[in-house]
Amino acid sequence: MTDPEVNEKRAIRADVRQRRQAQGAIGASQAGEGISLQIQELLTQTDARRVACYLSSEFEPNTRHFLKWALEHEVDVLLPITRDDGLLDWTLSDGVSERTHQWGFPEAVGEILGPIAINRVDLLLVPAAAVAHDGTRLGWGRGFYDKTLGSMEQRPPIWAIVHDDEFVPSLPSEIHDMPVDGVITPTRVIPLPLTEDH
C-alpha cells in the first residue's frame, strides 16, 4: 500500500473518531437503540440464535442495548478477548463482566472458549470505522478481526456496525482487509455488495 493510501486511512479514522466523540452520550445511546432494533430485525430474517458481537467503547456504535436485549431473549452472544498473537479468544456474554484493556477499550471477562468458538456462530457482528458499498471494511488498524477472519475455514456471515454517514461509496483497502457481507446502521440493514440498481 502506498503512503498516500496509508495516510488516507489514518485521516478517515481520525475524522470518524472526532465525529463520534462529538455525538455525545445521548446521541450515542439513541443510535444504540436503533442499532439494537436493526440487529433484532437481522436475527429475525436469518433465524440466528448464536452470534458474536463486541463490547462498544465510548467512540464506537453502541452495542450495549443489543447485548441487554439478547440476554433477556436467550440469544447467545460471544464477545472477543484479545490475544498476544493477534487472534481473538471468545467468551459467552453475561451482560455484566468486563474490564478495561491496557489499550483503553472495554473487554469481556469470562470463561475462555478459544478462537475456534467463532466457528459455531450464525452471525458475526464486527466494529468498523467505515464500510464501503463493495463490502470493504476499514477497521482501527490493529488487525484483530482481519487475522481472525482470515484464519477461519468456514466464515459465518460478517456484518459491520457503523453510523449511517460511515457507509460510503469507496474506501482504500489492502490485500489482508477482509470484506463484510453486510452493514448495520441505526436505521438500516444492508446486504453487500450493493448491486447497480441500489
Rank of each mutant, 00 (worst) to 15 (best):
A70N: 08
K68G: 13
F105W: 14
D94G: 06
L55V: 10
D122C: 02
D89N: 13
D94S: 06
Q102S: 14
M152C: 06
G110V: 06
V180H: 05
V183N: 07
V126K: 11
I26M: 10
T100H: 09
A132V: 13
A160M: 05
D84H: 12
K9N: 04
L113A: 01
W140S: 04
G110H: 06
P169G: 07
L79K: 09
G143K: 08
A132W: 07
A130L: 03
L113R: 12
E153Q: 11
P106G: 10
P193Y: 04
P106W: 04
W103S: 13
S170K: 09
F105E: 13
Q38L: 05
G150C: 03
A70G: 13
P169W: 09
N119K: 06
L194K: 14
Q38F: 02
E8L: 10
D134Y: 06
D122F: 01
V75E: 00
E8Y: 03
V6I: 10
G104F: 05
R19K: 14
L88T: 01
D15W: 06
G34R: 10
R19V: 10
E60D: 15
G34I: 08
K68I: 08
I161G: 09
A31P: 15
S93N: 15
F66K: 06
D181Y: 00
I118M: 13
L192D: 11
E41P: 01
E58L: 04
G86T: 01
R17F: 12
D3Y: 08
P106E: 09
I190D: 00
L125E: 03
H73W: 01
G110Q: 04
V16M: 14
I39R: 03
V16L: 09
K147N: 10
L125D: 04
D134C: 05
L92G: 07
E5S: 10
N7M: 15
E98F: 15
G104W: 03
V6K: 12
L123H: 06
D134M: 06
I81P: 05
R49Y: 01
E5V: 03
I12S: 04
T195Y: 07
R17P: 00
E60Y: 12
M178N: 06
A22V: 12
N119V: 00
A129V: 05
I12F: 02
S151L: 02
D146G: 07
I184C: 11
P179D: 05
L78P: 07
P186N: 11
V109I: 11
L79I: 10
A28I: 00
W90E: 07
W90F: 13
Q18F: 03
R50C: 11
G27Q: 10
G135R: 12
Q154A: 11
Q18A: 15
E107R: 12
H133I: 01
L123K: 05
A117V: 13
R17L: 15
G143M: 07
C53E: 01
L67T: 14
L78K: 09
A14K: 09
A108E: 07
K68A: 14
E41N: 11
K147Q: 11
P80C: 11
I26R: 14
V121N: 02
P106Y: 03
R120K: 13
A52M: 09
Y145I: 00
